[in-house]
Structure formats: structure tokens, C-alpha cells
Design a protein around this nucleic acid. Structure first.
Lengths: 239, 239
DNA sequence: GAGTGGTCTAGACCACGCA
DNA sequence: GCGTGGTCTAGACCACTCT
């Protein structure tokens, strides 16, 4: 993570330049970059080196390349973000798309635990979003989402929020989520779970504690999801 | 998955050749392959194309490349397999290494559900391994592992089994696990969980249902792990 | 046909590990 | 100092998309 190689390959430097441009929003989501050739010329490297950079960013899902068309800023579209970071499914079955039940948002001072998890300063404020998501008509997931208010000014006015928040983060606030760290545990349904999800107290609940990281490696979102595990699973492939 | 490109790049053909050799055990785990140069010469391609193949297999963790030393068959060593496929940790903390509690193995006819999950023929036999794993001295995980007996002849005689079975699969049976598909759910502790893990009936248990896939895309292992979720989580990073 | 990304080559030089 | 993988270049040609 914090190596000092003492040697910095050319493609690494070029990579950083391109990442910086993407993070600064030089190109909009869905927009095409200049061609491999012209970028290589502009940055004074060979086409092969430029390709290595663009291929790496494609592997990280920051860019998309389409033969014959061009290189594009990857869009966290609803469907795409859905399948990438939303991993709830029926057992042995296909992925699901939730619909919105209820939601609420407010801005307030960050609590100690929130400052720790999101690496915020002492006087930071956060946006707290609480929502219930339905699957096939029934309430299934209760989420509490904490965002640094400074990074998402006015997001609480975007209600109703889109199904995939990461699309909004990218298009509305220039924040591109590239990774999430999740910790899953089993817990028993609380009174709140009962009220919001309609499950009996003491039923098993799958709890997902997630930190989302953006292109510039900032911790951008803390989300705790409580899933009615009766007929839902968290599905993932490890490679 | 089942595309018919109508066009087959050279590196793809070379890739298949190398995969076949690895699967056939032409080189042993930990052993060095011939150098990039000599492989390229032997297979009649340029060094650049050969590199593309070896880099791809390195990304899939089938090979390992070490500058100045050579290209090696990746070993599913205890530690490595441990960190790659064993994802149990303390909340917010470091990964853990379990130790063996009790274990038992027997060979029997496959049940219907096992034939389905492992895509076995009607008369197939399986090895059933049951074991309890301890973390920091206390029983924490109960696993039931189902293997196709034909693929692992005599594995039940290897008791006590190593902590990481995937190391044994590779070194003892030439089976290299390259991916797992997992489905996680929350359940309540059963009487069996109480007996084996010492937790109270009705406590929350994290259940991991895993199918492991080998280099040749065979479904090689079905494993159900029941984890005492009181002080343990399943930690994963999605990129 | 023009322009893009995708493949392939041949060769040079650099960084690393080891004897 | 040699052999290995890692980087970088320059250029050719192929496949795909759109006009």
C-alpha cells in the first residue's frame, strides 16, 4: 500500500495523470476519451504504454473500451452498479432488483464512531439516509447510510433517491465508487427490524457492514444493511 | 460463456495449451516453468504474445511470476489459500487462522441434492467430511464438505486433514481450485450447532454455502460452513 | 473508407536474484 | 555477469463501427 519503489515506471506516472483527470471530471460519465493514439502523443509515450494504462483502468471498471468505437468513462448505471455491488439474491437463483419502500434523510454532526469509520475531522457533519427496500413487494432490507456532508452537499434534497445511489454519487457529485469493503454477520431481528421489515423479533437477520471507497481512495460511504434472510442470500464469487 | 467468436486470437490458443499442461500436471506446484523466451520459441509465438498468456494466468493466480527468478506454478499453500478463500475475521480486524477441533470422513452414495449441486452422475459416490474448526481455542465453525469420490480417491485416509484442504486437493490429487461461488445467509442455531459449537439454540449463525470450481471448470467441492457469528464476521472486498 | 480498439511482432533496455 | 521477468518502443496488420 505505502511502498516506496525508488523506481517509478512510465506507465505508472501516466496512469496517475489519467486517474487525476477522471477524478477531476475532465470527461463526463459515458463520454469518450481521446483515442489511444492521440493520448499517447499528448503525453509523450508510445501507444503500447498508453494501452497498458487504459487497459488497467478498464480492468478496474473505471473505463470501458469498445472496439471500433472508442474508450469511455464507465457509467455506474443502475443496472451495472446493481449487479456489481448489490449482491442479494434468491438461494441458488438470479439476482434481484429491489424497489424503494420508505426513506428519510437528515444532516447532523458526525458521531464518534462515524468519524472513525469515515476518517472525518472532529467537527465534520454527515448525511444520514435511512431507507427500507422491498423485494417482490415485501420489505426486505433496511439500510442506514452515512455520508460526509461536505462531499455530498445538498444530497438530502434529491429525494426520492434513485435505487442505486452510486449512480447519483457519480453523476451528481463526481464521486466514483471503485471498491467496497464488507463485513457480514448474522444477528437476531430487533424491535426496529420487526417494525420496518415485518419480521418477528428473534428471527435471523443478515447484516452487511460496508465501507465504500472512491477513485481517490477516500472512504466515502458507510452503510449498514439488515436483510431479512428468510428467503434471501448474499451471493458472491471469489476468484 | 459459450460464445463462438468465429475468430480465435493466437494468445487464446496458446493460453489453452498452457492451461492444459498445468491441468495435466506437466509442472508440479511450486515448480518453475521454462522461461518466457523458451516457451515462446517452443510454441512459435513472439515473446510479447507469450507474456500476455503468462500474465493472464498470473492474474488468475494459477501462475506466479518473480522478477529475476522465473515463472512458477502457484501453490495453494496453507497461508495463501487461507487468505484467499477463508474470509472469517474479527469485526474490523485482522484475518484469523482456525485450528482443527474434530473431524470425520466417510464414503457413501451421493444424495440427489449432492448430485445436483456437483453435477454428478446417478451412481456417483461422494466423500463426506465433517469437521469442527476452532478459533482462539473455542469451537467456531462447523463444516460439512462433499467431494466426488472419483476425483479424490482415498482422501478419507489422509486424516487428520490439513487446515487448508485446497492445498491437499492440489498436491495430492492435482485439483487446483480457482474460484468459489458462495451464498451467505443468517440462520438460527440448531441442536446440532449447540452440540458442536457450544452456542445456545436460537443464537444467530452465519451460514456459508460454497461450490468450488477447478481449473477445468469442474464443480469439485460443496461445502456448507456454519459460523458462530457472535464475535466473527465474513470479510470481503468487492472491486 | 476512415477511425477506433485489438493483436502480434522484433528488439532494446531496465530491475532483480543469484552464484 | 548471467538469466529472469518488467518496461518501453515502433510499426504492421486485423476486427469492428459508422458514414
Amino acid at each position: 500500500m505505502s511502498e516506496t519503489p525508488g523506481y517509478r515506471p512510465l506507465y505508472r506516472q501516466v496512469y496517475d495523470i489519467v486517474v487525476r483527470r477522471v477524478a477531476q471530471g475532465v470527461w463526463r460519465p459515458g463520454e469518450a476519451l481521446p483515442s489511444e493514439q492521440s493520448l499517447a502523443r499528448e503525453l509523450g509515450v508510445s501507444q503500447g504504454t498508453m494501452r497498458k494504462v487504459l487497459d488497467a483502468l478498464t480492468a478496474e471498471k473505471v473505463l470501458e473500451r469498445r472496439q471500433g468505437k472508442g474508450t469511455f468513462i464507465a457509467e455506474n448505471t443502475q443496472e451495472r452498479a446493481q449487479f456489481r455491488f448489490f449482491r442479494i439474491a434468491h438461494p441458488g437463483g438470479k439476482r434481484l432488483t429491489p424497489s424503494l419502500g420508505t426513506e428519510a434523510a437528515r444532516v447532523r454532526a458526525a458521531r464518534s464512531v462515524e468519524r472513525d469509520r469515515l476518517e472525518l475531522t472532529r467537527d465534520a457533519r454527515v448525511v444520514e439516509i435511512t431507507r427500507v427496500r422491498h423485494i417482490e413487494g415485501a420489505p426486505a432490507i433496511r439500510e442506514v447510510i452515512i455520508l460526509p456532508a461536505a462531499m455530498f452537499p445538498g444530497i438530502e434534497k434529491h429525494m426520492p433517491l434513485p435505487n442505486s445511489l452510486y449512480t447519483l454519487y457519480q453523476s451528481g457529485f463526481g464521486v466514483t465508487i471503485v471498491a467496497t469493503h464488507e463485513e457480514l454477520s448474522a444477528q437476531l431481528a430487533s424491535g426496529e427490524d420487526h417494525r420496518h421489515l415485518g419480521i418477528t423479533v428473534g428471527a435471523p437477520v443478515l447484516v452487511i457492514d460496508r465501507i465504500a471507497v472512491d477513485l481517490t481512495e477516500r472512504k466515502v460511504e458507510w452503510r449498514v444493511s439488515r436483510v431479512n434472510s428468510e428467503n434471501l442470500v448474499y451471493a458472491i464469487t471469489i476468484t
